[in-house]
């Protein structure tokens, strides 16, 4: 995998156009430097060593990684990661050659209810790697890329918890949340948002994207990637939109 071409600046530096988010960005950079100093040598440290992209950088020249995590439940404290799927984007072009999918061997039994949803049973899960191996693989893929997820808070919650356990630190991550992007786009257009109207498959339908099997980490990641491409195509056909305008900034992390 080639190294990120875009970020030319040393470490963190906000671009001219992103003055308005500079305080948050500086906080983000400080937290990131702190996490790097605490991270053990390996995938996470390597990932944090690559400077994050500047918020002024156009989306079209930014590299992304759409990620989906399937879990046994919705509570990062209690529930476990079952599988992680991802696929990389250069700008808005999705590259299937980079598609990745790892199963995680759970420390406890897979609850029956979640097995029904993901189709991941104990038997299949037993073929997976440890949570640490899965995280290493994910952070290798994430090197030099901005994370994309649909309803990112959930993914971030589980990632933070898992990183704390396995790396002893919570790395702040630059993230795009396709759910928030879609919500903004609807608010801006003055369109009402129906109940459940921001679910991935509902939004995909609105953008004429094909129906895909859901609750498969890789296909959901691909689904989010396609939705991201559609949202950007709608909002900015020229491709000059700065990254800072689409980043998701939950206060907790920044």
């Amino acid at each position: 995998m080639t190294r990120a071409a875009a970020p030319q600046r040393e470490a963190c530096a906000p671009g001219r156009a992103a003055f308005w988010l500079a305080p948050g960005y500086w906080r983000f950079c400080r937290a990131r430097d702190h996490a790097r100093s605490q991270a053990p040598a390996g995938a996470l440290r390597d990932c944090l060593n690559t400077p994050p992209p500047a918020p002024s950088q156009p989306v079209a020249r930014t590299r992304f990684l759409a990620v989906d995590i399937e879990t046994t439940g919705l509570d990062p404290q209690r529930d476990a990661i079952l599988s992680i799927g991802w696929v990389a984007l250069d700008g808005t072009s999705i590259d299937l050659a980079t598609a990745g999918h790892v199963l995680v061997r759970p420390q406890r039994e897979v609850p029956e209810q979640s097995a029904v949803i993901h189709g991941i049973t104990d038997h299949r899960a037993a073929t997976g790697g440890t949570p640490g191996e899965a995280l290493d693989a994910l952070f290798r893929a994430l090197d030099g890329r901005v994370l994309i997820a649909h309803h990112a808070a959930l993914e971030l919650g589980f990632l933070a918890r898992a990183c704390e356990r396995h790396y002893g630190t919570r790395p702040p991550l630059a993230v795009v949340d396709t759910l928030r992007l879609a919500e903004t786009s609807r608010r801006r257009a003055g369109r009402p948002i129906p109940a459940r109207g921001l679910r991935l498959h509902v939004l995909r339908g609105e953008y004429n994207l094909p129906a895909r099997r859901t609750h498969d980490a890789l296909l959901d990641a691909l689904g989010a990637a396609e939705l991201f491409a559609a949202l950007i195509a709608e909002r900015d056909p020229t491709g000059e939109l700065p990254l800072g305008r689409v980043l998701f900034r939950p206060r907790r992390l920044w």
Binding site: S93, I94, E226, A229, A233, P237
Partner: peptide, 14 residues
């Protein structure tokens, strides 16, 4: 071919 494909979303009018 599958793993060698890239995906693009092309907007109406493009």
């Amino acid at each position: 071919m599958v793993r060698r494909l890239t995906l693009r979303y092309l907007r109406h009018g493009a």
